[in-house]
Amino acid sequence: MTVKPEWLRVKAPQWQRVGSVKEILRDLNLNTVCEEASCPNIGECFNAGTATFLIMGPACTRACPYCDIDFEKKPQALNPLEPFNLAEAVRRLNLNHVVITSVNRDDLPDGGAVQFQRCIEKIREVSPKTTIEVLIPDLCGNWQALETILRAEPEVLNHNTETVPRLYRRTRPQGDYARSRELLRRTRELAPWIYTKSGIMAGLGETDAEVRAVIEDLRAVDCDILTIGQYLQPTQKHLGVQEFVTPQQFDAWREYGESLGFLQVVSSPLTRSSYHAEQVRALMERYPRTKSDNSIEK
């Protein structure tokens, strides 16, 4: 399939505002997943002055065939100035809510957990009222590394499930469905005040029943927020789209997730993991949480 349906067409961005955000990012030597992963919402988000920062990249140690992030380049040593530059970008952009994600860094013993920690801490110093969401890789199941990130106390911890178990070997050959669920389960157990989040791509050949089963699995580990969006093929080298899922089907999945008790389900063709992520601030006001005495300690 090559012709996109009407519901996947987006408005052309106002490049003046996009350019000003890009200028700040280039000045501070920062990457965004908005650009690296060819997100279709880049115009809307950049025009709103928001961005999802991509740390420890842009080269990735995994070669997921759906992803447009570069895996052919060799990963570089971590930049010790990156946490400072990221905090400065948050200050310059005057962000109320920031999303920090990363490439997979399986070459590092902790998967980059300490870099996440440092970024969170520096943002807190510069902009203490900014809420922070981290979208993290599976850390190869290194649960001590997960604890390192949780001790920095982001408001939201996001880890994407991406697809249904049957399609993992083809879609996420270096990933593991059970490991991803375990990461979310441990986060809830260790830091119950942190909001957990996960996302699924649709259109890779999954069935409605399989998507509903994943929704159930995520709710079973007490995941709070769910995003579901249409997979779009970045280039001819990547996995092809098997189906353009209708908006009505996305609505049905949203309603099903809400019926199971998710605090928020964002499900539409153009939904991405951090699309409208700033809405979590309103969610936190509706469902406030306080740190419990028996949770993970710093």
Rank of each mutant, 00 (worst) to 15 (best):
V10K: 13
D176V: 07
P58Y: 11
R254Y: 08
L8T: 02
A89G: 06
V33W: 02
K11P: 02
E216Y: 04
T32H: 04
A282I: 05
P83Q: 10
V221P: 11
P137V: 07
R286Q: 11
I194S: 02
T171V: 13
N85C: 15
I136C: 06
R124K: 14
E36W: 02
E155R: 08
C39V: 09
E278R: 14
A12R: 15
I296K: 08
D27F: 13
L167C: 05
N79S: 14
V114I: 13
D68S: 15
L239S: 09
G257W: 10
K197R: 10
E182S: 07
V114R: 15
D70E: 03
C64P: 15
E206T: 01
S198R: 13
V114F: 10
G205N: 11
P165A: 12
V126H: 12
L8Q: 01
E206D: 04
C140A: 12
P173W: 03
N160M: 02
F244P: 02
G112R: 05
S38H: 14
N160L: 02
R151F: 00
L218G: 04
L95A: 03
L190E: 01
E189H: 11
P247I: 07
G199V: 01
D68R: 14
L135P: 00
V245Q: 06
R26T: 07
S268H: 10
A37M: 05
Q279A: 11
G43R: 15
V10Q: 14
E216C: 04
L78A: 07
D68V: 06
W253D: 02
Q230M: 07
C64L: 02
A282N: 11
D222K: 15
H159Q: 09
F244G: 00
E35L: 08
G175A: 14
R169I: 15
E72M: 05
A213M: 09
I200C: 03
G175R: 13
Q14R: 12
C119L: 04
L86E: 01
V241K: 01
R91G: 04
E23D: 12
T50S: 10
